[in-house]
């Protein structure tokens, strides 16, 4: 069943809400160190797909495997798998009543059972990674969107996940803040972090991805390396989709 070269396997995920099919049998595999970027029009199930991977949304059918262990149908062990899959959200979702450093350390202490001192040390280290160490004692309401998102990335990284799931991490940010967050994600990719990224940032997608997966109508319509998708005539839809953004950029 399991193929050792893949860290994450996603098989035939289906999800419908009433009559609306959101995900129509989506499958793909992820190797350690891969950066897979999901692009495509809004409402094509990209975010739902990420949530089905860590079971925040339970798929109607299909299976997910992490390091050879089944994540779907794992009962209460799902809480273990979720630690191993760090998630970053469009709207950050920091815990509003906790300082930046408490945001990062709370799951270390309460979920991993790490001693408070050790957790604090690790939390500060993670904050330094994203350039937020100086803001450790600030509350979310005192941070800019880009800073908040960097803290939320540190929070996810602190759990030492095998895979990072980025769900439109810059969609709520202005261009300048977008750049500071993408910089952090780029560095992670460079350091070999395995990640799945849903984004509308085409420049980022083409420069960082090992593979771009173009989703349309709940399916992976086309997939390939950025070079393939942009040059190979077989991948016309992706090229047109990315092209729209480029033309728009040129007009600006």
């Amino acid at each position: 069943m399991h193929d050792d070269e893949y860290i994450l396997k996603v098989e035939n995920i289906r999800k419908s809400y009433g009559q609306t099919v959101v995900l129509d049998s989506v499958s793909f595999n992820v190797r350690k160190g891969d950066t897979k970027v999901f692009i495509g029009p809004s409402g094509t199930g990209k975010s739902t797909l990420l949530r089905c991977i860590n079971q925040l949304t339970v798929p109607d059918s299909g299976r997910v495997w992490l390091n050879g262990e089944e994540v779907t149908h794992s009962g209460s062990r799902i809480n273990y798998f979720r630690q191993k899959m760090g998630m970053v959200f469009q709207n950050f979702y920091l815990f509003d009543h906790l300082t930046a450093v408490r945001n990062v350390e709370i799951a270390l202490i309460k979920v991993k059972g790490m001693p408070a001192k050790e957790a604090r040390k690790k939390a500060l280290l993670e904050l330094r990674q994203v350039g937020m160490e100086d803001w450790a004692d600030h509350y979310p309401a005192e941070l800019s969107g880009g800073q908040a998102q960097r803290v939320s990335i540190a929070r996810a990284l602190a759990m030492d996940p095998d895979v990072m799931l980025f769900d439109e991490p810059t969609s709520a940010l202005d261009p300048e803040l977008t750049r500071e967050v993408l910089e952090v994600i780029k560095n992670l990719a460079r350091d070999g972090t395995t990640m799945l990224v849903v984004t509308h940032e085409m420049g980022f997608a083409t420069s960082v991805a090992n593979e771009i997966l173009f989703m349309e109508g709940g399916r992976i319509a086309e997939q390939g390396s950025p070079q393939e998708l942009l040059s190979d005539p077989r991948f016309s839809r992706t090229k047109n989709f990315i092209g729209q953004f480029r033309e728009f950029d040129r007009e600006m």
């Binding site: 630690q83 899959m85 998630m87 979702y93 799951a107 309460k110 996810a156």
Partner: peptide, 10 residues
Amino acid sequence: QMIAAQALGM
């Protein structure tokens, strides 16, 4: 925030 907490394994 509830979703984020559960995503961390809580």
